[in-house]
């Protein structure tokens, strides 16, 4: 197990280097000389420019610049945002927290809904329940996240049952931690439900198909032949085996949910990574774009790693070879 994790971690190194290099290339090929543009900007002090010049080697050849940039990257230093005039790291830290809260909240919610329904549908394969739930899943899969988000925003704007936009509406410094947390969760609800709505269909479908496939496996037949009760065959044997590939999916989802989250954040006004990179692209704030790209891919890599570790943990065929 330890060896396996170590192997996966070693495998990450070339991936990270490749990822950072591609990110660097993308930003370098963007039009315009940003260093010059920065110098022209009266709002940026000469000290900041001097500091960036030395730490990022901005007057050196491009390939040397990459290594400067990589060195800073290892220390999570992404430079200074042109638009905000504060370090990119500070900006990302704040936004990343929100995005992760949103992603984890909606992942948790959608898995909580999808898995039991999928087991129900899979167990009653081809029944009315199965067909009905599968149809709902089709609808959920085919609804683009931005459309659901817009529909929700429309609904909320008409009914005003939940707060929309931002992360808090209580700005009283004396407010207790719990009150602030509850307020935060209330704001999280709209983007969270939207994202969950879109995600649940995928998880349902994958899990339902896994369940049906597992349920037809010889070892399930053998479990029945042993005289096991239905409860044990369904939940102990079929569910455990059907859940196995889902751990990989869970890992992958940590990365892919960022895509859906980005548009949802932008439409629902949730200040996360998605809206950050959009603002950065619109204002041509290149260091911020680069920082967001690197961090989001880093999350995806971490997600895949978690998926690999989870499946190794739950599947003895991978854990013990």
């Amino acid at each position: 197990m330890k060896k396996l994790i170590l192997k996966r971690l070693l495998h990450l190194i070339p991936m990270l280097i490749g990822m950072s290099f591609v990110s660097f290339i993308i930003i370098q090929s963007s039009p315009g000389d940003y260093f010059a543009q920065m110098k022209m900007n009266p709002e940026i002090s000469p000290e900041t420019i001097q500091q960036m010049r030395t730490s990022f080697g901005l007057d050196k050849p491009v390939i040397v610049q990459y290594f400067y940039w990589l060195k800073n990257l290892v220390r999570f230093d992404f430079g200074v945002s042109f638009a905000y005039h504060i370090p990119v790291r500070t900006l990302i830290k704040f936004r990343l927290k929100n995005t992760l809260c949103l992603a984890i909240f909606s992942l948790f919610l959608s898995w909580l809904i999808a898995i039991p329904l999928a087991v129900l549908a899979g167990y009653k394969e081809n029944s009315f329940t199965d067909r009905f739930l599968s149809m709902l899943a089709y609808i959920s899969i085919s609804l683009p996240s931005f459309f659901v988000a817009l529909l929700f925003v429309y609904f909320i704007s008409k009914t005003a049952v939940l707060p929309l936009g931002g992360t808090r509406s209580i700005f009283d410094i004396n407010a207790g931690t719990f009150v602030i947390f509850a307020d935060y969760m209330k704001h999280l609800l709209v983007p969270g439900i939207v994202l969950c709505f879109v995600n649940t269909g995928w998880i349902f479908r994958l899990m339902r198909n896994n369940f049906v496939e597992t349920f037809n496996n010889p070892y399930i037949l053998a479990a029945w032949a042993r005289g096991l009760p239905a409860r044990s065959v369904i939940f102990k044997h079929t569910l455990r085996n059907a859940m196995n590939p889902m751990f990989t999916i869970l890992g992958m989802e940590i990365g892919t949910i960022l895509n859906g989250a980005a548009l949802t954040e932008i439409i629902c006004g949730w200040p996360g990574m998605g809206s950050l990179i959009l603002e950065a692209v619109l204002s041509h704030d290149l260091y911020l774009v680069m920082g967001s790209l690197v961090i989001s891919s880093f999350l995806l890599i971490i997600g895949n790693l978690i998926g690999d570790i989870l499946i190794a943990f739950f599947d003895p065929r991978i854990r013990i070879t």
């Binding site: 496996n217 010889p218 070892y219 053998a222 032949a225 042993r226 005289g227 044997h237």
Partner: peptide, 18 residues
């Protein structure tokens, strides 16, 4: 399993891998 039990063809496929 109690009064009547069965052995299958391909034993690997009939044992739950987990």
């Amino acid at each position: 399993g109690k009064d009547i039990s069965i052995i299958f063809q391909d034993p690997g496929a009939y044992l739950d891998p987990l």
